[in-house]
Design a protein around this nucleic acid. Sequence first.
DNA 1: TACTCTTTGTTTAAACAACAAACAAAGCCT
DNA 2: AGGCTTTGTTTGTTGTTTAAACAAAGAGTA
Lengths: 391, 391
Amino acid sequence: MKTGDLNLVKKINKSIVLTTIQNMAPLSRANISEITGLNKATVSSLVAELIDEALVGETGPGESSGGRRPVMLYFNKKAGFSIGVDLGVNYMLAVLTDLSGTIIYEKQTELEPQTNQEAIFTKLSLLIKDTMDHVPESPYGIIGVGIGVPGITNNEGDVLLAPNLGWGFTDIKGYLAKQFDIPIIIDNEANAGAYGEKLYGSGKTLANFIYTSIGIGIGSGIVIDNSLFRGATGISGEMGHFTINAHGPTCRCGNKGCWELYASEQALLKEAQNLPSLKERKDINLELLIQLAEAGDQDILQLFDLIGEYIGIGFVNIANTFNPQAIILGNRFSLIKKWIFEAINRTIAQRLSVSQETEIKFSERGIYSCALGSAAFVIEAFFSHRKVTVE
Amino acid sequence: MKTGDLNLVKKINKSIVLTTIQNMAPLSRANISEITGLNKATVSSLVAELIDEALVGETGPGESSGGRRPVMLYFNKKAGFSIGVDLGVNYMLAVLTDLSGTIIYEKQTELEPQTNQEAIFTKLSLLIKDTMDHVPESPYGIIGVGIGVPGITNNEGDVLLAPNLGWGFTDIKGYLAKQFDIPIIIDNEANAGAYGEKLYGSGKTLANFIYTSIGIGIGSGIVIDNSLFRGATGISGEMGHFTINAHGPTCRCGNKGCWELYASEQALLKEAQNLPSLKERKDINLELLIQLAEAGDQDILQLFDLIGEYIGIGFVNIANTFNPQAIILGNRFSLIKKWIFEAINRTIAQRLSVSQETEIKFSERGIYSCALGSAAFVIEAFFSHRKVTVE
DNA sequence: TACTCTTTGTTTAAACAACAAACAAAGCCT
DNA sequence: AGGCTTTGTTTGTTGTTTAAACAAAGAGTA
């Protein structure tokens, strides 16, 4: 049982001071005291410890406001570095970030579709090693590696199922832990994307939102009260598989009429193939359709509109279920924003009860959301034993 | 900003001690010390204060285990009383409970359908006053009134919309506050039901579950990490209005093919009306159908089965979205459990990916869930300034 | 320049909650 | 009767926040 003692009090206040510096630097000890309500003496003593731990530094004297000049403090975001990997179906993207989520280095590797698991593991190791080589000198070095996987993961770092990779149960954390002696965090690609947008993108100012990652499939990350909801056993947000057509076609998940059969890249490409103008072509992919849309192809524009409508139908379901402040659309479909945005909003206006005010947004960090979020999971874990919240 | 100080530590520990006594009484100070890890001296001092506040009492000496006999403590559940009201469409049920949720007194009032708001308010006042008259003498008296309303409420205690009552925006809290000088808490009927089941029913051992209240409409309460999720602005769980048929009939909410059009009492009665055997009858209601089912009417049994299937389809959506440990079916449809249970489970087995293990349960407190949950909201508020949690 | 006032940050002493250890109380066992 | 065990209180220590005093360093003004 978690009882209270003096140690806890200190931890809470130190956490508050650190968070304040992270969010509002540059600022002085006096500023912190005023903002937090903590006594000046308390702030001084806690800041001294944070400086000892290399998490905070002094930049020098600031502007006087009629008295002694303050000593300005900053958050030492270079105290350590995190690695985040977006493990896609046909690519791998790794980013190296500092403790504030700024990208220091990035590297992308292409993957042949259907690459076997052994080969993916090897490439992943190489990618991580390469990224590690680009870490600057720092007190804490690399504080961990986070990986976003397009599939279902549990809280122990196992992948339970990743159909688009052809994986069943996979102990990816175990594999990596053997090679790298640092914390490894595995999570779902949509959760990571949601977290990335929460910290560094469209979700920065939102406490409650749903991030929907629409690509080949549809995944989602649920942010409630500023933190990610992972569900009972770490599986959740499989919203691509809710039924929007009770007697529709069977999905590979076993259910019928799943949303993702109507509103994903897989649905889009299938419909495109049926267009008279494209019937013969074998090279249909999202990029081609974007080209055609740019050129003003009416069939394609109409198709995008239809897909947008189905996305809107799913969004109405999400809004009715969670009443979030916003739904953020991310992953590949953020590329076709301009052709689906109107249809999504139109559908929502038609179907959603007026009392709800859910805004539709698009991912701000684009293809980086997932890698950034994965890196952020590591940073969160690094700070977790320093940060405490009370309610 | 919420900083830490000695006062906070004390509050945390006092809260732990009180919770421990509530959950495990009768027990001694030494027991508490052992269970919580708090020092014996600390426990003694905190228990002394709780006794001063009349929340805890001593029953007398317990069994010796080879030394001095312990003084056994109990939670004084009679220190105050709470009133919970289930404001239904054609009835009002009030319960008077002690601080542990035990019902001391209850009273139900029938309502004519379409009763106007003024009349409902008057009846509600009378019901509350009558309930108050049955309160035993106690240190804190009546600590508040909680009301569960079949509609959308916000966190300020306003009803925004209650279609089945014919209400638009209604300041019910304001009305009651004028007459009763105690805390008034207004919440959605499904949220209250969920909370009632969480504390005193099928949800007691579950940290994550979805309570679906299926009656005329379908509402839902979402329990995440042992606490109720209310959504961005206190509106959430309008799951009855997610689409399960993208191009189905239009619902009064504006959306199309809403789940509640296929799986609620309203759907059931409409289908029943179309049965050849019932075409001429004007007195179709749930109770009649139950009678017929008991008598073995094949048409009715088949109809129940069909409705069960649609309930199952919605449950699959819920499971895919939240991955809860269980889905608890409550309200009127808990009455027809034996005729729909099999169809629900069958549908889920067919449609839900095997990796998920969501159990289907039925409400344990039956028609009391909502009133009990409403009363519990009041108790929670009463303790909220005493109880603190840290993470 | 000299002086006062303001602001910043540190030092000092007081308050207080948890804690360990000693102690008192009240039982059990032989 | 005496030793042992368990319970619960008392006593003194530790560690943290805090208010108040203080020191440092600048601004403003005559």
